[in-house]
Design a protein around this nucleic acid. Structure first.
Length: 852
RNA sequence: GGGCGGUUAGCUCAGGGGGAGAGCACUUCCUUGACGCGGAAGGGGUCAGAGGUUCAAAUCCUCUACCGCCCACCA
């Protein structure tokens, strides 16, 4: 292909992404051996939602690393997954199709959603619901893929997976069954953090603290023949759930009370006063009420002090209808009746009234703001209810496993290294095993059933398990071996486990899903453990931790060698982007306005792991760089001449100035290579770019005339070869960052794709430039720069001739300059150059008289 | 409450024991035969503050302040 008359960036995306697809440029060749392969555990983005700037930012950084590795000869295993599993999709499906999931219903293969939105959502079976989810996410997945392609991500688009697809379900269920067989998964009935809106259990990793308004209430607990005990609480509505009071064992104020009991206000229930070291004498009145359950400290006290359970909050977030059995008195029952059925918030208002009337409230509630735990996707504070759930051991209650997790964390190469601290604090702060069951519908079901006893009650202790060959199964429609479908739900029959797995229980298996664990042993041995896990900082405690845990339990090793943690993207004012503030920037309009290489340039200027503000200025700079590459290349190829493809033999480079260029180029290659070796795409870009601008501003200007043939064939050949070599190397150095413009220019004079070309080798350049004097280019550039400055200072055109230029410098520099004197003279348009030895560099310029 | 990262030009950020840098913005100039979606040049900084180590500190150490984030049993 020839050099276009007027090079442009317009249309490069469409042209080249179509071409790369047609040519299979990024297709994974699975015949390569493990050592030749570089495998990346790409984060599967959540597809039900909008495209985030942060994802584009992180994926681009990973792509530059991937492209570098590919050019160094590694075969890239770079699949892309879509995380469609989970709550966000469920919500959209309910609204979009007007349905709701009822797992007790049987599958209806002929089901079609209502044509028009309906008032009452249609109840459908879980498999039907999951089908609709799948239908909806396909659109989103296409939108995502389109964006990724426009950004130039070099993923192999034939290697995609989804986290609810059959393959992922099979891996997820198989791993669960293995965890179960080894005793790493277990079921327990226990107090659980519970979201009352989503009506599901929530894991520690999904918690978020939020500043929430509340109030201290001072409440009297009664004693016979003595003053009442005053306690402070933010949750007076839980007084009916109170099972004890607690104070610090050393707290002299309350020591006399230990061992005695007090009566709860309104309800008249006797509760003991106990001592526990967790009680903080500084907080409130130093004595707290323990309820089942107001917060996680209550759970600790309840467990360690062996207290009874007196739950009042139900799974819907309302107070149960019947009072706890201990509330026996008629006054107490009457008081409770006024709370029954109310939400906790309503109940709080009501009980404050009741306490006021009974005189048990001291003073008025004192408003405060405090941190309260929420489900990260939820809107109301979490409650704690007792439910039966599935757990996976995560080291929280197992010091030996915890130590192994810490060791794996230390064995993993973190980029940047300080991100490891987040992992360690998380592991060390785990306060319970990983709760993996969710009372939701769109996700991977637990692959098991329970026998029903004669009363129709499930026998949880001995679940009925499928063989691994049967996976994936949906126990709500599939039937356990040895049973008939009509035995479902009948006494003596069976019932499926109704829950699905936490989305992270599947996402934590992306290496196994992508690498074909237990499904494609050949692929697995070629790709696992993977080389790199790139991801955002906010999911270290979820995705990264859980992946290390699952791989550790199953394979006894890390799932990858390195992890790169990208920075956070901030809005242009360095504020966190959030929907509520309305400062969210999305990538697609930016690609359209600035072009993909420009957007990539901004992303790749963000240092690894460093929070980076959206910067339209940087995108403009990136676009300018891409344009400069087009024009500089066009010019260079113009002077190199026809048939230039064959003239990159470094041995043709004879002139000292040209050799000096090759030395500088070699240093740049080494710098960029070393930087990429540490996954530092940003430094590689910076060094390459710096060299490139110097190349354009100084070197190209210096050799222009000679390259045109102004001083004979030998000098011309040398300049042409140096230009060709430099261009060839520069395009390859820029290729990981700016894949579109480099591919465009490459296509003008090279065969194949620059993205499959070998990474530049500095050794070849060094060999060719042996005996080169690097100073030649530096001094020549200094002199030409000084002359330009003189012309600019006197407000003259750069074309103005100089009558005379006097260069003063140390002897060695003057000698270097002499080697390029003809080029300098022509570039400076100097009629005469005089060299005077001096201690410091100085240039005196005498311009011809101004004609005007 | 514990921890991690940061604080360098008006802005966004590199740098990391010996000259204080880049881009943008600003000012001035150049319509050069690669490039006006250009190009050349210029002005601009107590490197947050204090103390210490050193011949030498923006850089290493200590403390302080502020910003961001992570974690925490939040009555």
């Amino acid at each position: 292909m020839a050099v276009p008359e007027k090079p442009t960036l317009d249309g490069l995306e469409d042209r080249w992404s179509a071409r790369w697809e047609a040519d299979g440029t990024y297709r994974f060749d699975r015949s390569k051996a493990r050592a030749e392969i570089f495998s990346i555990d790409t984060p599967p983005p959540t597809v039900s939602g909008s495209l985030h700037m942060g994802s584009a930012f992180g994926y681009i950084q990973t792509d530059a690393i991937a492209r570098f590795r590919r050019m160094t000869g590694r075969e890239l295993f770079y699949p892309m997954g879509w995380d469609d599993n989970g709550l966000p999709t469920e919500r959209r499906v309910q609204n979009y199709f007007g349905v709701r999931c009822d797992p007790s219903l049987p599958y209806d293969p002929a089901f079609e959603p209502p044509e028009k939105p309906v008032k009452r959502p249609v109840p459908i079976s879980r498999p039907n619901f999951v089908e609709l989810c799948g239908r909806l996410v396909i659109e989103d997945e296409q939108k995502f893929e389109e964006l990724w392609r426009r950004l130039g991500l070099s993923v192999d688009w034939s290697q995609t997976y989804t986290t609810v697809g059959a393959g992922a379900q099979r891996v997820s269920q198989r791993m669960f069954l293995r965890n179960l067989a080894r005793g790493e998964a277990y079921q327990a009935e226990a107090p659980t953090l519970w979201d009352v809106d989503f009506r599901t259990a929530v894991a520690q990793a999904e918690l978020e603290d939020r500043q929430t308004p509340g109030a201290y209430h001072t409440v009297r607990f009664h004693r016979d023949g003595a003053d009442p005990v005053l306690i402070e609480t933010t949750r007076p509505e839980l007084i009916p759930a109170c099972v004890a009071l607690v104070a610090h064992p050393d707290d002299a104020r309350h020591q006399p009370l230990f061992g005695s009991s007090v009566r709860t206000p309104l309800f008249g229930v006797d509760v003991p006063v106990l001592a526990h070291a967790l009680a903080d004498p500084e907080k409130g009145s130093g004595i707290a009420m323990i309820c089942t359950f107001g917060d996680l400290t209550d759970v600790t006290w309840w467990r360690e002090l062996d207290l009874p359970t007196r739950a009042v909050v139900e799974w819907d977030g309302r107070l149960r209808h019947d009072p706890p059995i201990e509330i026996a008195g008629s006054e107490g029952r009457a008081a409770y009746a006024e709370l029954a059925g109310k939400t906790t918030k309503q109940a709080q208002q009501q009980i404050v009234e009741l306490l006021r009337r009974s005189g048990d409230l001291v003073g008025d509630p004192r408003p405060i703001t405090h941190e309260v735990k929420y489900y990260e996707k939820g809107d109301r504070p979490l409650e704690i209810v007792t439910t039966r759930q599935w757990y996976i051991r995560n080291g929280a209650r197992d010091p030996e496993l915890r130590e192994r997790l810490l060791q794996w964390g230390r064995a993993l190469q973190w980029h940047p290294p300080h991100m490891r601290t987040r992992y360690e604090t998380w592991v060390e702060g785990l306060n319970g095993d990983w709760l993996i069951s969710r009372q939701r519908f769109f996700g991977v079901p637990f692959p098991l059933w329970y026998r029903l006893d004669d009363e129709g009650q499930p026998i949880h202790d001995e679940p009925l398990l499928p063989s691994e060959e049967r996976l994936p199964v949906d126990p709500s429609s599939d039937v356990p071996d040895g049973y008939e479908p009509d035995q479902r739900g009948k006494p003596g029959g069976f019932v499926g486990d109704p829950d699905i797995m936490d989305t992270w229980a599947t996402s934590s298996l992306t290496p196994q899903i992508a690498c074909g664990w237990e499904a494609d042993g050949d692929l697995f041995t070629r790709t696992f453990p993977m080389d790199l896990r790139p991801q955002g900082p906010e999911i270290i405690r979820t995705w990264l931790f859980a992946t290390v845990l699952r791989a550790g339990l199953e394979h006894g090793e890390l799932p990858w060698r390195d992890t790169t943690i990208n920075g956070w993207v901030l809005d242009p004012d360095r504020k966190k982007m959030s929907k509520s503030i309305g400062n969210v920037v999305t990538p697609m309009p930016l690609v359209e306005e600035h072009g993909p290489d420009a957007l990539r340039y901004w992303s790749l200027n963000g240092r690894p792991g460093v929070d980076t503000a959206v910067d339209f200025g940087q995108m403009k700079v990136g676009r300018r760089l891409a344009i400069k590459i087009l024009n500089a290349s066009k010019f260079a190829l113009g002077v190199i001449g026809e048939g230039a493809g064959a003239t990159t033999d470094a041995r043709d480079v004879a002139e000292p100035l040209d050799r000096a260029l090759l030395v500088a180029l070699a240093a740049t290659v080494e710098d960029a290579t070393a930087s990429f070796g540490e996954h530092d795409y940003a430094r590689a870009l910076e060094r390459t770019e710096r060299f490139f601008w110097g190349f354009c501003d100084d070197y190209v200007e210096l050799v222009k005339q000679r390259a045109y043939g102004a001083r004979g064939a030998a000098g011309q050949a040398s300049a042409r070869a140096a230009l060709a070599i430099a261009l060839d190397v520069l395009l390859r150095l820029f290729a990981p960052h700016l894949p579109f413009v480099t591919e465009e220019v490459w296509s003008w004079w090279r065969e194949g794709s620059v993205h499959r070309a070998p990474w530049p080798d500095s050794g070849v350049l060094r060999d060719a430039a042996v005996h080169a004097e690097p100073e030649v280019l530096a001094v020549a550039a200094d002199v030409v720069g000084a002359v330009r400055k003189a012309k600019t200072a006197s407000k003259r055109s750069l074309r103005t001739d100089a009558e005379r230029v006097v260069v003063r410098d140390r002897r060695a520099r003057l000698e270097a300059l002499e080697a390029a004197l003809d080029d300098v003279r022509e570039t400076a348009r100097a009629r005469e150059i005089q060299l005077d030895e001096a201690d410091a560099f100085d240039v005196e310029v005498e311009l011809v008289a101004d004609e005007a």
